[in-house]
Amino acid sequence: CETCDRYISGRVLEAGGKHYHPTCARCVRCHQMFTEGEEMYLTGSEVWHPICKQAAR
């Protein structure tokens, strides 16, 4: 997992080739988790909900 550096077994979320436990992938702006299939916007090592990234501009 990109966030906690632990092995992932079971469900995995992926953004930009990086992998996360579903509970570790959180938006840097709103701190909410991502749901399965939800779009993730990756900037460097930061993961955003698209609407949060747009609002931060």
Results as ranks from 00 to 15, higher is better:
residue 17 G to M: 06
residue 31 H to F: 07
residue 33 M to R: 15
residue 32 Q to G: 10
residue 56 A to S: 12
residue 17 G to T: 03
residue 9 S to F: 15
residue 23 T to F: 03
residue 24 C to D: 04
residue 44 G to T: 08
residue 44 G to N: 08
residue 17 G to P: 05
residue 39 E to D: 13
residue 11 R to S: 10
residue 15 A to F: 15
residue 10 G to T: 03
residue 29 R to E: 12
residue 38 E to N: 11
residue 22 P to R: 05
residue 25 A to M: 11
residue 4 C to V: 01
residue 46 E to F: 05
residue 57 R to E: 15
residue 27 C to V: 02
residue 28 V to F: 14
residue 2 E to D: 15
residue 6 R to I: 04
residue 17 G to V: 02
residue 20 Y to D: 00
residue 4 C to S: 00
residue 4 C to K: 02
residue 29 R to Y: 11
residue 31 H to K: 13
residue 12 V to R: 10
residue 16 G to P: 00
residue 10 G to M: 02
residue 40 M to F: 07
residue 4 C to R: 00
residue 48 W to K: 13
residue 12 V to S: 13
residue 27 C to L: 02
residue 30 C to H: 02
residue 18 K to D: 02
residue 35 T to A: 12
residue 20 Y to F: 10
residue 48 W to V: 14
residue 39 E to H: 03
residue 12 V to P: 13
residue 32 Q to H: 06
residue 19 H to P: 13
residue 28 V to R: 10
residue 18 K to L: 05
residue 46 E to M: 08
residue 36 E to S: 05
residue 30 C to S: 02
residue 15 A to R: 13
residue 44 G to C: 09
residue 25 A to W: 08
residue 40 M to R: 11
residue 28 V to Q: 10
residue 5 D to G: 11
residue 26 R to L: 08
residue 52 C to K: 07
residue 27 C to G: 03
residue 16 G to S: 09
residue 54 Q to N: 15
residue 8 I to D: 06
residue 46 E to H: 06
residue 56 A to E: 13
residue 23 T to D: 04
residue 49 H to Q: 01
residue 25 A to Y: 14
residue 48 W to P: 06
residue 6 R to D: 04
residue 31 H to V: 03
residue 18 K to C: 04
residue 8 I to L: 01
residue 44 G to A: 10
residue 11 R to K: 15
residue 5 D to M: 10
residue 41 Y to Q: 14
residue 49 H to C: 04
residue 30 C to P: 02
residue 27 C to P: 05
residue 48 W to R: 14
residue 44 G to V: 04
residue 20 Y to P: 08
residue 22 P to W: 13
residue 1 C to R: 11
residue 55 A to G: 13
residue 14 E to G: 07
residue 36 E to I: 05
residue 24 C to T: 01
residue 12 V to Q: 09
residue 9 S to E: 14
residue 42 L to P: 09
residue 6 R to F: 00
residue 39 E to W: 00
residue 40 M to T: 11
residue 19 H to W: 06
residue 43 T to Y: 04
residue 37 G to N: 15
residue 25 A to C: 11
residue 31 H to L: 10
residue 39 E to F: 02
residue 8 I to Q: 03
residue 9 S to Y: 07
residue 51 I to V: 13
residue 46 E to S: 07
residue 27 C to M: 01
residue 6 R to E: 02
residue 8 I to Y: 00
residue 57 R to N: 12
residue 49 H to T: 01
residue 28 V to W: 08
residue 50 P to W: 04
residue 42 L to S: 13
residue 29 R to T: 11
residue 32 Q to W: 04
residue 22 P to F: 15
residue 8 I to A: 02
residue 25 A to T: 12
residue 20 Y to T: 05
residue 35 T to E: 11
residue 2 E to M: 15
residue 48 W to T: 13
residue 23 T to N: 07
residue 44 G to W: 04
residue 2 E to N: 15
residue 29 R to H: 11
residue 57 R to P: 02
residue 49 H to G: 02
residue 55 A to D: 15
residue 2 E to C: 14
residue 37 G to Y: 10
residue 19 H to R: 09
residue 19 H to M: 14
residue 48 W to Q: 14
residue 20 Y to M: 06
residue 57 R to M: 15
residue 50 P to H: 08
residue 24 C to G: 02
residue 45 S to F: 07
residue 52 C to H: 01
residue 16 G to L: 02
residue 21 H to F: 00
residue 11 R to C: 11
residue 15 A to C: 14
residue 49 H to I: 01
residue 30 C to W: 00
residue 36 E to T: 07
residue 22 P to H: 04
residue 21 H to A: 01
residue 2 E to S: 13
residue 29 R to K: 12
residue 21 H to W: 00
residue 25 A to I: 15
residue 35 T to K: 10
residue 48 W to D: 04
residue 27 C to I: 07
residue 46 E to K: 09
residue 53 K to I: 06
residue 26 R to M: 10
residue 33 M to D: 07
residue 2 E to F: 14
residue 42 L to Y: 14
residue 10 G to Q: 03
residue 39 E to G: 09
residue 33 M to Q: 12
residue 32 Q to T: 10
residue 45 S to I: 07
residue 48 W to I: 13
residue 42 L to V: 15
residue 45 S to T: 13
residue 6 R to G: 03
residue 50 P to E: 10
residue 19 H to L: 07
residue 2 E to I: 15
residue 47 V to Q: 05
residue 13 L to Y: 11
residue 43 T to H: 11
residue 21 H to E: 00
residue 41 Y to C: 14
residue 10 G to F: 00
residue 25 A to G: 04
residue 49 H to A: 00
residue 40 M to N: 06
residue 43 T to A: 06
residue 26 R to K: 14
residue 28 V to G: 08
residue 52 C to F: 01
residue 49 H to S: 01
residue 20 Y to K: 03
residue 4 C to L: 00
residue 55 A to W: 04
residue 25 A to K: 15
residue 31 H to C: 09
residue 55 A to I: 15
residue 44 G to R: 10
residue 29 R to L: 04
residue 33 M to W: 12
residue 50 P to F: 08
residue 42 L to N: 14
residue 3 T to D: 08
residue 3 T to K: 04
residue 10 G to P: 05
residue 37 G to P: 09
residue 13 L to W: 04
residue 11 R to L: 06
residue 31 H to R: 11
residue 4 C to W: 00
residue 25 A to E: 00
residue 16 G to T: 01
residue 26 R to A: 12
residue 13 L to V: 15
residue 42 L to H: 04
residue 1 C to V: 01
residue 11 R to I: 03
residue 40 M to S: 10
residue 18 K to A: 05
residue 51 I to D: 13
residue 27 C to R: 00
residue 27 C to Q: 02
residue 57 R to V: 08
residue 56 A to D: 08
residue 37 G to Q: 06
residue 54 Q to T: 10
residue 34 F to W: 02
residue 37 G to A: 10
residue 2 E to G: 11
residue 6 R to V: 02
residue 10 G to C: 02
residue 52 C to I: 00
residue 49 H to L: 01
residue 34 F to V: 07
residue 39 E to Q: 09
residue 11 R to Q: 06
residue 14 E to D: 06
residue 37 G to C: 08
residue 3 T to Q: 10
residue 51 I to L: 09
residue 20 Y to E: 02
residue 35 T to S: 06
residue 27 C to S: 02
residue 10 G to I: 01
residue 32 Q to I: 10
residue 18 K to E: 01
residue 31 H to Q: 05
residue 23 T to S: 09
residue 46 E to Q: 06
residue 56 A to V: 11
residue 37 G to W: 07
residue 34 F to S: 04
residue 17 G to S: 06
residue 15 A to M: 15
residue 7 Y to K: 12
residue 8 I to M: 05
residue 18 K to S: 03
residue 30 C to T: 06
residue 56 A to I: 08
residue 17 G to I: 00
residue 46 E to P: 02
residue 3 T to M: 08
residue 2 E to W: 07
residue 5 D to Y: 15
residue 42 L to Q: 10
